[in-house]
Amino acid sequence: MDSAVITSTFTSPVILFFVLGFAAALARSELSIPEAIAKGLSLYLMAAIGLKGGVAVAESGIGPDVAAAMGAGFMLSLLIPVGAYAALRAFGRLDRTNAGAVAAHYGSVSVVTFVTAAEILEGVGLAPAGYMVAVLAIMETPAILTGLLLARGALGSSEGRRGEMLHEVFLNASVVLLLGSFAIGAIAGPAGFEDVRPLFDTGFKGVLCLFLLDMGLIAARRLMTSRALNWRLIVLAIVFPLVNGTIGTLVGFAIGLDPGSTAALGVLCASASYIAVPAAMRLSLPEADPGVYLTMSLSVTFPFNILIGIGLFAALARALAGG
């Protein structure tokens, strides 16, 4: 595999800001991003990635590879929790509720990991196709349904609770903003995007740096205060992205995606949600321990993917493509 692709992540300012945040929190620095700014950064990133994806689809059109990528993403999100659940029960020694909740996180995806991967991949000449943003949005939800079925054999304890959960799943802020801005980008097209490019394109990397600085702080602080994590769960939080990411990359290659989109599908499968799914699990499985599922996804898997996973799946996708 191309080791230059793997090492290039360590010289990216985006990754280095994440490392700075992580290290600052470990050193017990008081550094923090004010709440309103952090929320603004997150909204900006989701709107920008959605818009850019929509514009790219408007430029390239919709081909059979789009349907294949969306179908593959849906099925992977639906099925990945099944394997994760089995491992969490057998090796992780979690009860049914916690195993189902954690499995849902690993079938779903991390928007920030995807955004970071898109930047890194573009930097090494493997820019993913614009429609991968739609694949990202599609992959947020199916895993939640699988996780709930695994945890208790049903989607909700009552009609009202089910409605509350489905509302959270399909209309959570990230799905609405991602798909909404994707649609706006697809309608506006490249010409329409020119008017907003100074805000959504020029400043994108800088904003991503600040957001990852905050994510580094949050991930490390959660890790330092965690009581629920043990070595078995830490091992699984590293094995899951390796296995799931490899499966995603191989599937992307098998269905004929371009190398950049293949790597992006690998990263999506490797990533674990820590925004949409925790809220859905709090509503649907309040007995599950957030200290387990959030610490695994946010404090172990997320840093692993940012530092190692993205470069690894990019190199694998390039090797498969024979580059």
Binding site: E35, A38, K39, S42, I218, R221, R222, T225, S226, R227, A228, Y274, I275, P278, A279, A280, M281, R282, P290, G291, L294, L298
Partner: peptide, 10 residues
Amino acid sequence: GRWREERITG
């Protein structure tokens, strides 16, 4: 254990 506002995680 300890908890603190994370803003994004629910």
